[in-house]
Amino acid sequence: MSPSAASKRVTVPELDDLRELLPDWRRHLRSINRASSTITSYLTVGEEFVDFLVTQGMPTSASVITREHVEHYIVHLQERPNRRTGKPLSAAQVAKHYRSLQQLFRWLDEIEGEITVNPFTKMKAPHVPEQPVPVLTDDELRALLGTCKGRSFEDRRDTALIRFLTDSGPRVGEIAPLELGNLDFDTDVADVLGKGGRWRAIPFGNKTGEAMRRYIRARARHPKASTTDRVWIGRSGALTESGIAQIIRRRGEQAGIMGLHPHMFRHTFAHVFLADGGQEQDLMRLAGWRSREMVGRYGASAADQRAREAHRRAALGDRV
């Protein structure tokens, strides 16, 4: 072989190279009905991990990657500035990378048998300091609704959207694809497709039902009404998750609530439900959770407040 031919030779990755395996992992995630957003997030982390290994001259063959390689990557993340803000990644963002890679190597180990030693064995996830998400007060919710008191299409849509988020606490990824046929106004229930491809029925109250019906009538007259069965529409047609988030952020700014995002309604819903004496098991069914850990995570947003209120109701010291 001539020197020039040798210099042009392309190195073919080994069969157990992560660059070869990531597309198969994507197929596996699709086969078990993981949400498209979850798959995208997992694959992005996997690709960034591979890029790090290549840049650092570390092996990319799954069977050769060790705990030390993963730990080097975690330290790199903790020191690397966020590309968008220039600030270091938060502890929660680093932990997200850890959990995503943990899922990748669990698949390589338990499903595919591509590795004999899982580098995550006996590893501990990076510590994430508890930072409860603030919940919305009644006054803030009233202020939000006050920003869309008019009779325009946008006002009626946004009123219905805010009330629906407040009343039922769905994920934004569950309401963006919501279709007209998923709404039952006889029982005031919406059928949403949650994580893991699991359907569940979430109820809503009278005021939300009234706002939704008012919006549905306005929607029927909208120029884009016939282009989609999706409930939430705008100038260009069906609203995406990002579009819904932009509406909520804009209404929040109008109400003087900076940084408002749809997930704050989910935390608020969980807090109010528990504060009013709701049972954890019922909250799990309504929110679409399978783990009690999620109840604790969302309930932490205002756990101290609930504890103080419970103490006042008990009034133990005043009994004697």
Rank of each mutant, 00 (worst) to 15 (best):
P13T: 00
V94P: 08
V75L: 15
L101T: 06
F273K: 04
A201Y: 13
F269S: 08
V10L: 01
D167I: 06
L21V: 05
R26I: 08
F185A: 13
G296N: 10
G288F: 12
A95N: 14
G113E: 07
E309I: 10
Q102G: 10
D139Y: 00
A125Q: 14
A307R: 15
E154D: 05
V70G: 06
R84Y: 14
R200L: 09
G317Q: 13
D282K: 13
K149R: 14
A160Y: 03
R99A: 14
R292W: 09
S301C: 03
L274I: 06
D51R: 14
F153P: 01
E71R: 15
R290L: 04
R30D: 11
T11S: 04
N118E: 06
P170N: 09
M58E: 15
I248K: 04
H69G: 15
D51H: 10
T66F: 12
K149L: 09
F185M: 15
K96E: 11
D138Y: 04
E179D: 15
R312T: 09
L89E: 08
H127V: 07
L104C: 11
L108T: 03
A238S: 14
L29G: 09
I233K: 03
T166Q: 00
M123C: 04
T268C: 05
H28S: 06
K195T: 08
